[in-house]
Amino acid sequence: MSAIAPDLINTAAALWSEGFTATQIGERLGLTRNKVIGLASRNRQLFPGRTEGAAEKEQQELAQIESLWGTGKTQAEIAQSLGKSFSTVNKMIRSWPERFPKRSKKDLNSVKAAAKPKAVDVPSPPPRRKPDPSVFSPIEGTTPVLLWEAPNSACRWPVSTADAPEKAVCLHVCGVDAVHGRYCAHHAKLSFGPGTASEREADRLLLALGGA
């Protein structure tokens, strides 16, 4: 069995102290896994024992750091995100240069710009429907009555006596005898105009509330 140079042993010990597994150390130094394990067992002062699962934990933490590194975060930001010290993160990054390629400021800006949520175009609301002012004019030859004075049998269609009924608050109703539900024959026909029932009702409410 050929002797292993002291410098190689020291390098292996340094990697061991940083959490590298025997397989990983062997791959870096051109040794077999068993040879690294043999080195560790013969040089316990350089290769202190590690708790079970320590290497796996190191690799999990390394993967987390690598993932955050890929999003463009700085070492300080990574340390803060993972609750670790800056020196710990820096040491792991320096120990694995192949997994943490150097980044220019331009690269960082590009990565962060790509990760930034894109603005969503919100479509403009449809134009507000306006009621036809003529439908709220009194029927020719009739006299509108105030809403609170109209008998139960009166047509409840809102009407306005103003010159611009679309801009006035309707306090009057048709007043003609209702023959179709709440409305007279004329206004019952208007109530089934274009649009849905809710849209037609909205037209009436708009004027009744003074909005046009």
Rank of each mutant, 00 (worst) to 15 (best):
D132K: 11
L31S: 03
Q59D: 04
P131A: 15
A76S: 12
H172C: 07
A197N: 07
S191C: 00
W69K: 07
L29G: 05
K189I: 00
T51K: 13
E18L: 13
A188K: 08
P165L: 08
F20Y: 13
N43M: 05
P133F: 03
T74Y: 04
T23S: 11
G193V: 02
F136P: 06
H180D: 13
K35T: 14
P151V: 05
G195W: 09
A63Y: 04
F20S: 04
S2Y: 06
T196I: 01
E66L: 04
N43P: 00
A54H: 12
G181S: 00
E27I: 02
P97A: 06
E77S: 06
T196N: 01
A162M: 08
A150R: 09
F20E: 08
T71W: 02
Y183V: 09
V145P: 00
L15N: 09
K106R: 15
K91F: 01
R44I: 12
G175F: 03
T74W: 02
Y183K: 06
S134W: 02
N90F: 06
S17E: 09
M1T: 01
Q64H: 11
S198Y: 12
D107L: 05
I139C: 09
L171P: 01
V173P: 00
P126D: 00
Q75K: 14
G193P: 03
L46Q: 09
L205V: 12
E61G: 02
R204F: 03
S124C: 01
V135E: 12
A168Q: 08
E61A: 05
V145C: 02
N109K: 14
E18F: 05
D107N: 03
L68T: 01
E98K: 13
I65R: 07
L207Y: 04
R42F: 08
P117W: 07
L8M: 09
A212F: 15
W69G: 05
L206K: 12
K57E: 08
T88K: 14
T74Q: 03
F136K: 04
A202Y: 12
A150E: 07
